Amino acid sequence: MKNEIHKHLKFRIGEEQCKHEFKLIYKEEYCCKKYCYDVYEFDKVDSEQLFDLKVEKILLYYNADVLTKIDYYFKPHLYTKLKVWIQQFIGIAYEQKLINNTYICSWYVGRYFIILKRISNNDQITLSYQKRKYI
């Protein structure tokens, strides 16, 4: 059942940047520990959905032109629905915690992590799909 979640994801970790290069807007360079990433916003997000929930924004993190992390942004009222959808595919989060007014739920799927973050008093929630836990 865990592999079923991949059917809902438009982007795949390990894809090369050239696959979507004409739909990307460069945002910034982001460095974390010893790795640096070129961050792009997906330009065609208007009609994007994940688990039948409207996506507000998508950020793609590339290291050496290889996709390493995807951030999906949603409206905050979708937090519970999104968490339930993920739990239906993967199961209960192996880690749920509150750090500095941020609720974090983490799932491990094969070699990758799915991390759902909701910051208190913020107008968005973030669902990250990434290769390493800390990016």
Rank of each mutant, 00 (worst) to 15 (best):
D123V: 08
Y103M: 10
Q88S: 07
Q88G: 07
V66N: 09
Y72P: 02
C31A: 14
N122A: 15
D71Y: 12
D43A: 15
Y129Q: 00
K2W: 08
K34Y: 13
I125K: 01
Y37L: 02
F51A: 04
I58K: 00
C32I: 15
I70Y: 03
K133W: 04
T126M: 04
Y108F: 09
I99R: 08
E48L: 10
L98V: 14
D46K: 15
N122M: 07
D43M: 14
I70M: 04
C18M: 13
Y26H: 13
H8S: 03
N121T: 09
V109W: 01
G14N: 07
L60G: 06
K57D: 04
I119Q: 13
T80F: 07
Q130R: 09
M1F: 11
I125D: 00
I86Y: 00
H6C: 06
C32K: 15
Q88R: 09
Y134D: 13
E41S: 13
F22A: 10
S128H: 03
I58N: 00
L24P: 02
T102N: 06
H77Y: 12
Q96L: 03
E21F: 14
I13M: 07
I13L: 14
A93D: 07
I70F: 02
F42L: 05
K75G: 08
Y129K: 00
K81D: 05
F11I: 06
K2R: 14
C31G: 11
K34R: 15
Y108G: 04
K57C: 06
L78I: 06
C105E: 09
C32D: 12
R132I: 08
G110Y: 04
L98Q: 11
Q49H: 10
L116F: 05
K23E: 10
W85A: 08
W85S: 11
F11R: 05
R12A: 14
L24K: 08
R118H: 07
N121F: 11
R118K: 14
K131P: 01
K117M: 09
H8I: 00
C31F: 10
T80L: 06
I115Y: 00
K133V: 05
V45Y: 05
Q87F: 01
C18L: 12
Y79E: 02
I104F: 01
K34N: 15
L9Q: 06
I114N: 00
L53Q: 04
L98Y: 11
K83M: 01
Y72F: 10
D43Y: 10
N121V: 07
K27T: 11
S120A: 10
P76N: 08
Q17H: 12
K7R: 13
R111I: 06
H77W: 11
Q130A: 03
Y112R: 09
Q88K: 10
S128G: 05
D46M: 13
K133T: 03
Y72C: 04
E28T: 15
E28A: 13
Y108D: 05
F42P: 03
P76D: 05
E95G: 09
L82E: 01
S120P: 00
K19R: 14
A64H: 15
M1H: 14
C105Y: 10
Y62R: 06
T102V: 12
Y62T: 07
I99F: 06
Y40H: 04
